[in-house]
Amino acid sequence: MKFPLGKTKVLLTFLFVILAVNFLAAQALRPGSGDIRPNGHVLDNPTETMEAKPSGGAVVQGNGINYHGGPVLHGNVPIYVIWYGNWTNGPKASDSQTTVNLIDAFLGGLGGSALENVNTTYGDNTANVSGLLHLQSQIFDTGSQGTSLTNTRLTNLISSHLANGSLPTDNTGVYLVLTSSNISERGFCTQFCGFHTAQTINGKDIKWAFVGNVDKCPSGCEIQTTSPNGDSGADGMANTLSHEIEEAISDPDLNAWFDSNGQENGDKCNFNFGATQTASNGSKFNQTFGGHNWMLQQNWRNSGGGACAQHL
């Protein structure tokens, strides 16, 4: 049997196309080979990481953390909270209205605080972070997505509340999903105490963070047994929340501020508290605002060479 030369060419071209398509498919599936960096950071063009030029004092480099060209959140940032699970009388004592009230007080006072002022050392080519934020609105969801949350279910949770109008769709704010101790989320307590991310929901770039009730894993996510407000869950969550909020504002789309190890400002000072005082109940604290004492990790200061700082 003889293959005519024309048919051979077609066959070889066909084989080449199959091989090329499969090669490309394999590259897309292989972890770490795409635009998503191992730590989750995303760059629009990995070969063109920005050496940002100072612009109106908004972008300052050389302090141990680098600018990658993405936006920060400006102005008085609205915070939206979804209390998910049983925040009335859950398995842990801190699954309670007391915790809700404490976190509300925390979010009400964090904006403009000395700690949040450290975040004003970050900016983009438009302006710096203001250091201001406010609790815009909050809702309660007792379990529309079940008790075992995945990333997909978390997305569905936010998406459903934006779609039904119980929360506005606001790409200038940060949405917080706070879960009670009866809710599980893969990786919570073994890998992380919280996380933040951004994705398109309802057609807008929505920035959101997850923080669970850290009473579920005191040794992993809490600082002390006796806490400043006598509610170890709320006090531990406040610490993780300060971390996530600062990062969600200075690196909202995961393409603005992080260092050569992929660490954002909060990561660089994780569980680093600096100088502390002792409260009357024997607990340690290092911040006072919103009518309460708090034990909050420091934030990386993007000035003066860079350092973990409680204030500027």
Binding site: G40, H41, T155, C193, C217, L254, D267, N270
Partner: peptide
């Protein structure tokens, strides 16, 4: 889903 976690 890209996300930045706070390590335990």
């Amino acid at each position: 889903q890209p996300k930045i976690v706070t390590a335990t």
